[in-house]
Write a protein that binds this DNA or RNA. Structure first.
Lengths: 255, 255
DNA sequence: GGCGGCGGCGTACGGCGTACGCACGCGTTG
DNA sequence: CAACGCGTGCGTACGCCGTACGCCGCCGCC
């Protein structure tokens, strides 16, 4: 009765896999299955066809094994996704960046954006708090160095990172939605807005939303040109960094 | 063959329901089903038991009707969720706030945070771009007034709003994850971190992540006290507003 | 040379979204 | 007043999902 619903992953199980990934037994060294092969196949499917296409049967098929064989290595789908996420974090660059904290944070933001662009499924998979696997931990440590030694408290360092990464994720999600939309409709975002503009204006003026009509139209028309998800990312990032610089300057002055 | 996969909602269908919600026919004025009753029941379920518990059978049961009757009013589950989202937006306050743009934006941020706290399912439902229903449009218009007349271009106004709302959503998601975690484990976030601290430190020092260990521990120990999701929300919000004020000041100076 | 255990998997179950077609009764029309 | 058409409500059934359970064959060890 104390146990939890199956809707969610068991973090302890995911952690067990992530931290001491099965040392290969003498027997299993062969061409057989492994957590690693399963995770790689799963990431490949999710990258190519999206999270909805990721089913246990599909993963097994890609590996040429029976469906239930996958369960020998992974307790369930939710835990598989946990491991996929940590694995993806492991691919990120960890290069130290020369320059001030702003350059470093900017670099981190762009690296994270690239991650989400390469693995768009992560934007939908990370609805629950990610499990603290080794690669996430390494990422966290690496990113903390970007904001170390600039006068912030430990808690502030964490908060700054959370803020920047949150913005990146929001912007990445918006960009991903545009990609999805273009893929479904076959139109670019700009074309879509333009084709719906008259329809929109009808309702906006009818309901007397003049501001929304004007701004929405302006933003819409710029889509594909100056404006777009990339602009929102850049604009927001600079605003966030500007905001952070205020605290940094404060601390430097008080320090 | 040109049609799309069923994994996703048909925005046109959702829009049709949202904008000209069936004028009650003479016959259906009675105690029968309606889009409105269905949506209300669905929101009630999602609020109380989460998005996973929201099934078409469950909605029908709550209304005391057969499962398939729901489909008379709503084309499918995805479209139902679209309508739920727009309906939730409709509940938000639209009070004009006295004060400068910063006070207004802050108010908007808090209103949106409250929305996500009341309807935590929205954080998981909004993985695709929300359909532009009447209430979302009204919300957009209302929120635009907060950043009007402060010297920003139309595109910048949209970008500022996107930035603030993105931060709110990220912070709300983090807070919601903490709530979920507390509900599952029965421990507060602070207790959880403390109980896992020795375990964490083992791995962090073993893998030589001293920064992560120190900051993570500091942040973890403050959980439930000064630090926590609320702090991340407030800290981030002030940073974002600081960043916006830089552009606003620039524009004001440039006249 | 026997055997224990583990890797691999076939079958089956419950639950999901939903297509399809039928029954019923009301409002309209002749 | 009678006949009809259609909107409403719904029972059944299908194909998909995740996954519990138990069997089978082979490898490495005693």
């Amino acid at each position: 009765m104390a146990s939890e619903r199956k809707a969610t992953a068991d973090p302890a199980r995911s952690l067990a896999i992530l931290w001491r990934t099965r040392e290969p037994t003498s027997r299993s060294a062969g061409p057989g299955l492994s957590v690693d092969r399963i995770v790689r196949a799963a990431i490949g499917i999710a990258d190519a066809e999206g999270l909805d296409a990721l089913t246990m049967r599909r993963v097994a098929e890609a590996l040429g094994v029976g469906t239930m064989s996958v369960y020998t290595y992974v307790p369930g789908k939710a835990e598989l996704v946990d491991v996929m996420i940590d694995t993806a974090y492991g691919e990120m660059p960890r290069t130290a960046v020369a320059g001030d904290w702003r350059a470093r944070l900017e670099r981190i933001a762009r690296d994270n954006l690239a991650l989400y662009q390469r693995h768009r499924w992560m934007l939908r998979a990370e609805t629950t708090r990610p499990v603290l696997g080794p690669h996430l931990l390494a990422k966290y440590d690496h990113e903390l160095t970007a904001v170390a030694d600039i006068g912030l408290t430990d808690v502030e360092m964490d908060a700054v990172l959370t803020l920047v990464l949150g913005h990146v994720k929001s912007a990445a999600r918006a960009a991903s939605e545009v990609v999805d939309l273009e893929r479904e409709t076959g139109m670019t975002d700009g074309q879509w807005w333009q084709s719906h503009a008259p329809w929109l204006e009808t309702y906006m003026t009818a309901g007397s939303y003049p501001t929304a009509a004007r701004v929405g139209t302006a933003a819409g028309q710029q889509h594909g040109a100056a404006y777009g998800p990339e602009y929102a990312f850049e604009f927001g990032l600079q605003r966030v960094l500007d905001g952070i610089s205020v605290v940094v300057a404060e601390r430097a002055a008080a320090g």
